[in-house]
Design a binder for these strands. Structure first.
Lengths: 117, 117
DNA sequence: TCTATATTTCACGAAATATCGAATTATCCA
DNA sequence: TGGATAATTCGATATTTCGTGAAATATAGA
């Protein structure tokens, strides 16, 4: 991931409404949610939300597809992982201050979910 | 970490110059770097950089202390870790799409550095 | 085809952010 | 004390972002 891509993704997430929408989609899973449902959960007007979802899409953090009258948005887990990896890059500096606790957190979370890769 | 804190941290990082400065500090380690050195590395004017470092500080991502005529900035690893953990929260959704690969990445990186927690 | 629903696009004023030159503060050292 | 260095603060301008109402587009179903 290039710095400019990371700035784009970070900018997209640097807004309360967009961050809420994104996290909602992360929790919603691969199936995603319709724009209308996201609007209801976040309390944003349809046109305002549409602009924000467009920004998340442009940053590569979400994907969308039409299904009937609805447009379903889902989180892009690959891009999300790349962004986090970018922030973690070179973090150890011989001390493992960031990485090691996150590694534990990640493995604990995944173990708790009984998830497999 | 609250959503508003995360938005503050993400906004702080959502700028090419600030992201470069922050990552430079992450790589620099706990000792940190003088503002002047950061300015030289990033190519920003002293006053512009000063404003940006103030934003990173306000977001809790960096700390500063005076040492002689210089002011040394360092990354705040705890806050950084909390931000990343916030983004990873609830990511598994039973599929471990984000967490598991990051857990591997984190442990590999730490192992490579020969680091200890 | 007509109507209702779901979402996006457009235009615009208000607010926030970024950058720069000039001036100011803090520290060191002769 | 006076000069040099390091960094911040101030003031102004340019740019970007945000939220909204109105209008347009796409789809489903009677």
């Amino acid at each position: 991931m290039q710095t400019s891509d990371a700035v784009g993704a970070l900018s997209a997430l640097a807004h309360e409404g967009r961050l809420n929408a994104f996290r909602l989609l992360v929790r919603a899973g691969p199936g995603g949610l319709a724009a209308g449902e996201i609007a209801r959960h976040t309390g944003m007007l349809a046109n305002t939300l549409s602009a924000h979802l467009g920004i998340l899409n442009a940053a590569g953090l979400t994907r969308s597809r039409r299904e009937g009258r609805s447009i379903l948005y889902r989180a892009d887990y690959d891009q999300t992982r790349e962004l986090i990896a970018f922030l973690m890059e070179d973090c150890c500096g011989g001390e493992a201050r960031i990485c090691a606790p996150l590694a534990q957190l990640a493995s604990r979370a995944c173990a708790a979910e009984g998830a497999t890769v």
